[in-house]
Simulated scan of single mutants.
Amino acid sequence: MEDWKTKCHPDVLKMLAYWEGKRGERSMPRRSDIDPAELVGLLPNIMLVDVVDDDRRFVYRLVGTGEVQLRGHDPTGKSVRDGYFAATPDAAEQRYQRVLDIRAPYYEEDNFQMVDRYVCEANLFMPLSEDDQAINMIMVFSINRDLYRR
């Protein structure tokens, strides 16, 4: 078992198991395989990010209410570069690019300074594909580690 799986929040493991169950024999599930009704308790921490073929590269399609509250704004419709929640826009984009490169879920724990606070997040990035070849969307589960340590 990978080291991060032994120390991450149980909801991260739930999301990974959900993604793995939905992919079946494919290397990754389709967006249509994901049923929000099956994720009700996790929805506030879920984001969907489109992979687009233009300079924007990654665009927030849907941002859960928990993530909006943590950020203090809703980046829906913005590129990751314009609506990022990380140390820098490049750091944010690199996470999504890594998912494209490895074509598999990617987990990271990120600590960064915002103007008004220090943020500690745990993020699981999961690729989605309509044709099981091109990744056209990335589903992200993000949870504030400070909140679950209490």
Rank of each mutant, 00 (worst) to 15 (best):
2 E>F: 11
8 C>N: 05
11 D>W: 06
12 V>R: 10
13 L>D: 09
17 A>H: 02
19 W>I: 02
19 W>F: 04
20 E>K: 15
22 K>Q: 13
23 R>E: 05
24 G>L: 02
24 G>P: 01
25 E>D: 11
25 E>S: 13
27 S>F: 13
27 S>E: 14
29 P>T: 02
29 P>K: 09
29 P>N: 11
31 R>Y: 10
31 R>A: 13
32 S>P: 08
34 I>P: 07
35 D>Q: 14
36 P>D: 09
37 A>P: 00
38 E>F: 00
40 V>P: 04
41 G>S: 10
41 G>N: 06
43 L>G: 05
44 P>S: 08
45 N>P: 06
45 N>H: 15
46 I>V: 07
51 V>L: 11
51 V>T: 03
51 V>P: 03
51 V>M: 13
52 V>T: 00
53 D>I: 00
54 D>L: 04
54 D>E: 08
56 R>G: 02
57 R>L: 13
59 V>I: 03
60 Y>C: 03
61 R>P: 01
65 T>W: 13
67 E>W: 11
69 Q>L: 11
69 Q>D: 15
69 Q>V: 02
72 G>S: 09
74 D>I: 00
75 P>Y: 10
78 K>C: 05
79 S>E: 05
79 S>G: 06
79 S>L: 02
79 S>C: 08
82 D>S: 10
83 G>D: 08
84 Y>L: 04
84 Y>G: 02
88 T>W: 07
91 A>H: 03
92 A>R: 03
93 E>S: 03
94 Q>I: 00
95 R>L: 13
97 Q>M: 01
98 R>F: 01
98 R>V: 01
99 V>M: 14
100 L>H: 10
100 L>M: 11
101 D>T: 00
102 I>T: 10
104 A>L: 05
104 A>K: 10
106 Y>V: 09
107 Y>C: 13
108 E>C: 13
110 D>Q: 09
110 D>T: 06
112 F>C: 08
113 Q>C: 09
114 M>N: 12
114 M>P: 00
114 M>D: 15
115 V>G: 00
115 V>C: 02
116 D>A: 13
117 R>L: 12
118 Y>F: 15
121 E>A: 15
123 N>R: 15
123 N>S: 15
124 L>W: 12
126 M>E: 02
126 M>F: 12
127 P>F: 09
127 P>M: 10
128 L>N: 12
130 E>W: 07
130 E>S: 12
132 D>G: 10
135 I>L: 15
135 I>Y: 12
136 N>C: 07
139 M>D: 14
139 M>P: 04
140 V>Q: 14
141 F>W: 00
144 N>E: 04
146 D>T: 05
147 L>F: 12
148 Y>V: 04
148 Y>T: 05
149 R>S: 11
150 R>A: 15
